[in-house]
Write a protein that binds this DNA or RNA. Sequence first.
DNA 1: AAAAAAT
Length: 541
Amino acid sequence: MGAKKKQGRQACCLQTMANDSSFLFSGIRFDRKRFGGDIAKFEKKESDHALNVSSLIEVEEVEPVGGKASAKKRKRKGTVSETVDGFNVFKKSKSAERPPKDGDKSVIEPVLKKEQNRQLERDALFRKKHNIHVSGYNVPSPLQNFNELSSRYKCEKYLLRNLVELGFREPTPIQRQAIPVLLHDRECFACAPTGSGKTLAFVCPMLMKLKDPSKNGVRAVVLCPTRELSSQTYRECKKMAKGKKFRIKLMTKELSRTGDFSKFPCDILISTPLRLRLAIKRKKVDLSRVEYLVLDESDKLFELGLFKQIDSIIKACSNPSIIRSLFSATLPDFVEDRARELMHDAVRVIVGRKNMASETIKQKLVFTGSEEGKLIAIRQSFAESWNPPVLVFVQSKERAKELHGELAYDNIRVDAIHSDLSQKEREDAVDNFRAGKTWVLIATDVVARGMDFKGVKCVINYDFPDSASAYIHRIGRSGRAGRAGEAITFYSEDDIPFLRNIANLMAASGCEVPSWLMELPKKKWKKHRPKRDSISTKPKE
DNA sequence: AAAAAAT
């Protein structure tokens, strides 16, 4: 009995590994005699899904390396850490722990088997071509094009029409893989660079899954870390749903206070965590029928402080068949750990490498000596290459106000955004920046994530970012959708200890980094960032 | 450590 259990688990591991493209070609020995029963059972189950091809069978076919060698190989190969991580995901996953039982002795048709193998091989090559890394058991084939949405998944006309009208021609890598995963009702955590189309990757399957508007209460929830981002996601969502009468609602202050969702039918609800939690507490919204939950910028949402709120929302979504998904450009290990506790049978989709800056951004470092030097440097930078609209990030609200005051005298249209402003002022700041009325927007990290300011060509980190992920997200406001972007990061004496972290990111995303930088000692981000001198040059009274 | 997230 015990032996049988062990066999099963082993089969399961192999399967997980075989799903990763790197494993398909590195080869794993699979003892068909021992696990034959398992395979047969899997194959039978999978034949119900026309598009899901069992990977177990594949394993036997590609078999040049000895069984023990495969473990060693795993340690050596570059892509491996991901695979090993991915494997761990399923070690904890309950359904993956439940391997098929012995006993089914049915024989598989050799022809079918061959075809399945070919499909798997095609998928692996295709993923490799688009730099998509997956782990998880039985990952659905990636999309070749958007037309497959209708040929494979019977997507309705309105959605295809909207895709064309909005200018989506070719799916991006994250869309190619995450959309089929979600359409197969699989939970998913996805990591892809900034500006690579993550929003569409979860909105599109969401609309397809919901099919039609209904009066069954809230059926889909999207959570975002800031109001600006939720309102942006709301707009994208409405654009994609054009032609269908879905009731899509943005959780505004008003709605969270007085809105009674049992009275307004609502299919899709987009909110920040606290507002939604407030509505739940006041029993204004019932999430027990939610079929689809998206945590956008999930690593931010999983940060301490926000996590507690998320947790209560996740619990309120009590529908057992709910499909949850996590999206972000950065996916630290602690988020994956928490995600594992949360999700079952999830597929992990990574485009490029985890926690990487977008490769379309030209990144520069500028030494400014002291705080005062920064003000000179930013003016100089404007004089040298005036490339508006420019987004300037500072460390705190106070500093945003100060810098705003300084630059306001310079005859440039400058504005600031931070959380001390009223909702209206924040909205106006974003709208004016988008409309080109504001040339330079000074911001705290409130708009560092997810915001899509299409025209932004240049991001200036006036204050050094607080973390690698803050850097990645900030500079990711430029260079979106494959366009070129520029990022300039100022650093003063005080920032030098943390410079190496940024240098590494720059080098990893293909930017030239002076060699002395790479020789700096490695140092972890400090909790206590240096206290910065005031920006203001005006004499103090 | 700051920012954001409710009123």
